[in-house]
Amino acid sequence: MDGVLADVYSQFRKYEKADLGIVQEAAAVVGKTEREAFRNVRTYVNTPGFFLEAPVMPGSVEVMAHLNRQYEVYIVSSAMEFPLSLYEKYRWLQQHFPFLSWEQLVLCGSKKVVHGDIMLDDHFKNLDHFGGRTLLYSQPHNQMKDPGKHVRVASWQEVAGVLL
């Protein structure tokens, strides 16, 4: 969800500007983990409203609606590391993706327990163990790495081109 449906990098930049007065250009964080790129990232993700107010990734709602009609779609998001995120992610999904039922939402700890046909994620740690087809959603933290066996997609239009 984070970095694929929800634009958490915009949130990090917004919080960092408000917190430290720093405005980082997108290129400045390429190749860095979120923790390396944003000094107070742990504080931000534990702040009420961080996940609830995250912008939606452009094109994600429309493409997800199409995917939901064509596939058996589940949203799987790690939510246990940051306890406030559990409820906020659920509310965020209800608000922005109302066509998904509560039964399609899996808020969990580790994604290693997830099995299926296709996984779209922005972290190698979630894709590398997955037994099905994998799509790597480009984000600054993964842009400098070879996608390997994963198909790299840089936008929701590219996701649609691969899956629809």
Score class of each variant (00 low, 15 high):
residue 19 D to S: 08
residue 30 V to G: 08
residue 145 K to G: 00
residue 38 F to D: 06
residue 105 L to A: 06
residue 39 R to K: 15
residue 119 M to L: 14
residue 159 V to H: 09
residue 110 S to G: 06
residue 61 V to Q: 11
residue 153 V to T: 06
residue 112 K to E: 12
residue 33 T to N: 05
residue 54 A to Y: 06
residue 65 A to L: 12
residue 90 Y to F: 13
residue 122 D to R: 10
residue 71 Y to V: 13
residue 126 N to A: 04
residue 41 V to D: 09
residue 124 F to R: 12
residue 49 G to W: 14
residue 92 W to Y: 10
residue 113 V to T: 03
residue 62 E to R: 12
residue 136 L to C: 10
residue 48 P to M: 04
residue 15 Y to V: 06
residue 32 K to A: 07
residue 145 K to D: 10
residue 152 R to L: 00
residue 44 Y to F: 11
residue 50 F to W: 13
residue 69 R to T: 10
residue 69 R to C: 13
residue 10 S to P: 01
residue 156 W to C: 01
residue 87 Y to P: 00
residue 148 G to P: 01
residue 150 H to Y: 08
residue 28 A to S: 14
residue 86 L to E: 05
residue 69 R to I: 12
residue 135 L to I: 05
residue 93 L to V: 15
residue 57 M to S: 05
residue 142 N to W: 09
residue 114 V to L: 06
residue 44 Y to E: 02
residue 96 H to L: 02
residue 79 A to D: 09
residue 45 V to L: 14
residue 54 A to P: 02
residue 26 A to N: 14
residue 41 V to G: 07
residue 1 M to A: 13
residue 152 R to M: 02
residue 32 K to P: 02
residue 41 V to F: 15
residue 100 L to K: 00
residue 14 K to C: 00
residue 130 F to I: 01
residue 1 M to G: 01
residue 96 H to M: 02
residue 145 K to F: 03
residue 55 P to D: 13
residue 75 I to W: 04
residue 23 V to E: 15
residue 46 N to Q: 02
residue 122 D to P: 04
residue 15 Y to G: 11
residue 126 N to W: 12
residue 110 S to Q: 10
residue 84 L to G: 03
residue 101 S to L: 00
residue 96 H to E: 08
residue 50 F to K: 05
residue 73 V to E: 07
residue 157 Q to L: 08
residue 102 W to D: 10
residue 148 G to L: 02
residue 151 V to A: 03
residue 91 R to L: 12
residue 15 Y to P: 09
residue 58 P to R: 14
residue 130 F to E: 03
residue 14 K to D: 11
residue 89 K to L: 11
residue 45 V to F: 14
residue 124 F to H: 09
residue 5 L to G: 01
residue 30 V to C: 03
residue 155 S to R: 08
residue 151 V to H: 11
residue 76 V to A: 11
residue 47 T to H: 07
residue 27 A to C: 00
residue 59 G to E: 12
residue 107 L to K: 00
residue 100 L to W: 00
residue 118 I to C: 01
residue 80 M to L: 11
residue 53 E to C: 03
residue 137 Y to L: 03
residue 37 A to Q: 05
residue 119 M to C: 07
residue 105 L to Q: 07
residue 6 A to T: 07
residue 139 Q to L: 10
residue 115 H to K: 15
residue 49 G to N: 14
residue 62 E to L: 06
residue 145 K to P: 00
residue 60 S to C: 02
residue 3 G to I: 01
residue 57 M to T: 07
residue 82 F to Q: 11
residue 87 Y to R: 12
residue 63 V to W: 13
residue 16 E to A: 14
residue 86 L to A: 09
residue 102 W to K: 00
